[in-house]
């Protein structure tokens, strides 16, 4: 039962991260494999602000801003110039892999190799629907729900959100309709980057202790969750994250925690074999 509880929190963290990741991929057309390194860099910014005596939940704002700004800069000065050169799409993916390594090991060079943790405890514990949850875990779940509702509202009811979906579905037609897609794409980097920074911070809080390389394999979970739900499908991302989060934690409890990422990877491969457009996604019509 406790593994189910853990799974639920991991799933909540993964859901926050995947919603940002899939939004980024769908609207900007960049499969940003550096997402994990931005997460952990953001977590470290939160950590340092927290070190200076700021409450961790307030310090989190620093992490969110870091994610947003780093993602925006990355797009502006790395991905966009590469995209403009009309190279094969795989080029940008490989560049992002390079950025991921630079981001992770650059961070390690700065902060050193040791584990750190926030100056806060898990808070008091609550019994909740048969589960034992700390207040930290409850807050993470609350943030997750808020993010999902917020993103849903953004995409469904706002002018910006609809323009984002239109840009994702058919960029040329969006431009023909008067949408400045370049602006929409930059804005998407800011928003998805903010979610990335938020996810990185709650990931680190939930882990308790963390180091520069802690999120190095997180991209596997993100890809698995995204493809499970269908790339570019925010509701699919929620479903994918829940499934992958629960499956990895529960299986870790019964098999071996070291296999967590392997389980996610297997899920990803099976998905790509049978339904590359996800459970919620549909095959793109022309």
């Amino acid at each position: 039962m406790s593994s189910f509880g853990f799974g639920l929190i991991s799933a909540a963290v993964l859901a926050i991260a995947t919603v940002g990741f899939t939004m980024q991929f769908a609207v900007t057309n960049v499969l940003n494999l550096a997402y994990g390194s931005i997460m952990i860099n953001s977590a470290f910014v939160t950590y340092y602000v927290n070190e200076h005596g700021v409450n961790a939940w307030v310090a989190l704002v620093g992490g969110v801003l870091t994610g947003a700004i780093a993602s925006w800069l990355l797009n502006r000065f790395v991905y966009t110039p590469f995209q403009k050169r009309n190279l094969a799409p795989i080029t940008v993916v490989i560049v992002s892999l390079g950025i991921d390594l630079i981001g992770t090991f650059g961070l390690q060079a700065i902060v050193g190799g040791g584990y750190v943790s926030f100056t806060q405890n898990q808070g008091r514990e609550y019994h909740f629907a048969g589960l034992l949850l700390s207040s930290l875990q409850l807050i993470v779940m609350g943030i997750c729900v808020a993010v999902l509702v917020g993103v849903h509202g953004l995409l469904k009811y706002t002018r910006l959100g609809k323009a984002m979906r239109a840009t994702s579905a058919n960029k040329n037609l969006a431009r023909n309709s008067g949408i400045k897609t370049q602006f929409i794409i930059s804005t998407t980097w800011l928003i998805s980057g903010a979610l990335c920074g938020l996810a990185g911070t709650v990931f680190a809080m939930n882990a308790g202790v963390f180091e520069a390389t802690s999120a190095q394999l997180y991209i596997v979970l993100l890809l698995a969750a995204m493809f499970l739900g269908g790339p570019g499908e925010p509701y699919g991302a929620m479903f994918g994250a829940l499934t992958i989060g629960l499956a990895t934690e529960v299986s870790a409890a019964y098999i071996n925690p070291d296999y967590k990422d392997v389980i996610a990877f297997i899920a990803l491969i099976v998905m790509l074999m049978f339904r590359p457009f996800g459970i919620f996604g549909s095959e793109k019509t022309n």
Binding site: R165, A169, N170, N172, L173, N176, K284, N286
Partner: peptide, 12 residues
């Protein structure tokens, strides 16, 4: 302008 193909936003 209505293009020959890709003339709507299918998921919308």
């Amino acid at each position: 302008y209505v293009p020959q193909i890709d003339d709507v936003f299918p998921p919308l």
